[in-house]
C-alpha cells in the first residue's frame, strides 16, 4: 500500500521546525510502523538526504525509546501498543498521517521526532529508589509479600518511561509516570520506610521540571502502552497529603529540597 506522511522536521532545539510531506510507497501490511519509516529513510539516505530522526532501540515495546504522535494519538493510539509494535495492517492504502514529536516544555525537541526525556531520569534520581547498597541483605524470603501487593507493585513498575503520558495529557503532566514509581515502591514493605520522603522529593522535582498538573482526564492511562492505572496518581496524592500530616518537620525539609 501507499501512504502520505506529514512529518515534523526540526534541526535542533532552536530551529522553529515545520511539517514536510513524504510518500511511503510499497508498504507491506506486515511491516511495523518503524519499518515503514525505515523504508522511507533508506530512500532518503540513498539520495544523500537526511533521514527522519526518531528514537528507537528494542523494537519490542519494552525499552521505552520509541514514541511520537500519529494523527494526534500517542504511539498511534492502539491499545497497549508502542509505536515500534504498531503494525501497518491497522492502516489502509491512501492514508495520510501526521507525525509529531511529544510536545512538552519539559521534553525539548532534539531533532525531528526525537525529544529529550531526561526530566524523567531526574525525577527518579530525586528519590525513586530504595536506599540499599550492594552487599548481603536479608534472605529474599524473609520478607513475605502477599500476591496482591506484589501484583500491585508489579503493575505500577511495568512503566517503560516512554513519555506517552505526558504527550497525551492535555496539561502535559507527568503524574502518571511519577505516581507509578511512588506506587511501585510505596506499596512494598521494602520501600515503605522512605515512602513519605520519596513522595515529597519526587513531586517537587516533577514540578521543577515544568510539567503540568492533573485534571483527571485519564488520557495518560488510556494511551499508556503498559496500561498503568490512574489509581497511581491518587495514591501519590494520598501519600503527599499524608506526608504533610505524619512526617516531622525535619524530614519534610529534607524531602522538599
Amino acid at each position: 500500500m501507499n501512504l502520505t506522511l506529514h512529518v515534523w522536521r526540526q534541526k535542533g532545539p532552536n530551529d522553529p521546525g515545520r511539517f514536510e510531506t513524504y510518500p511511503a510507497t510499497g508498504i507491506s501490511e506486515h511491516m511495523s510502523f518503524l519499518e515503514m519509516l525505515d523504508t522511507v529513510n533508506e530512500k532518503l539516505e540513498a539520495e544523500g538526504k537526511e533521514p527522519i530522526v526518531f528514537e528507537h532501540d528494542c523494537r519490542e515495546g519494552i525499552c521505552g525509546c520509541c514514541g511520537f504522535m500519529i494523527d494526534g494519538k500517542a504511539h498511534g493510539g492502539q491499545h497497549k501498543t508502542t509505536v515500534c509494535q504498531l503494525h501497518m495492517r491497522s492502516f489502509k492504502d491512501g492514508d495520510e498521517l501526521t507525525l509529531e514529536p511529544w510536545r512538552a516544555q519539559a521534553f525539548p525537541v532534539i531533532k525531528d521526532l526525537m525529544v529529550d526525556r531526561s526530566a524523567f531520569d531526574r525525577i527518579i534520581q530525586s528519590g525513586g529508589y530504595v536506599s540499599v547498597r550492594s552487599g548481603s541483605p536479608q534472605d529474599a524470603n524473609a520478607i513475605l509479600i502477599g500476591k496482591e501487593v506484589a501484583d500491585r507493585a508489579f503493575d505500577a513498575a511495568a512503566c517503560i518511561g516512554c513519555g506517552a503520558c505526558v504527550a497525551s495529557c492535555p496539561n502535559a503532566a507527568a503524574m502518571l509516570f511519577t505516581g507509578a514509581k511512588i506506587t511501585h515502591l510505596g506499596v512494598l514493605p521494602q520501600g515503605a520506610p522512605e515512602r513519605f520522603r520519596r513522595v515529597q522529593a519526587m513531586t517537587t522535582q516533577m514540578d521543577m521540571e515544568g510539567f503540568g498538573y492533573c485534571t483527571n482526564h485519564g488520557e495518560c492511562s488510556a494511551y499508556c502502552p503498559k496500561g498503568i492505572s490512574l489509581d497511581v496518581i491518587a495514591r501519590m496524592n494520598q501519600d503527599l497529603l499524608l506526608a504533610q500530616v505524619v512526617t516531622r518537620d525535619e524530614v519534610r525539609r529534607e524531602g522538599g529540597e
Partner: peptide
C-alpha cells in the same frame, strides 16, 4: 500545541 490531538477517554 499539536497540529492534531485526539482524546481517547477524556
Amino acid at each position: 500545541g499539536y497540529r492534531k490531538w485526539q482524546g481517547k477517554v477524556s
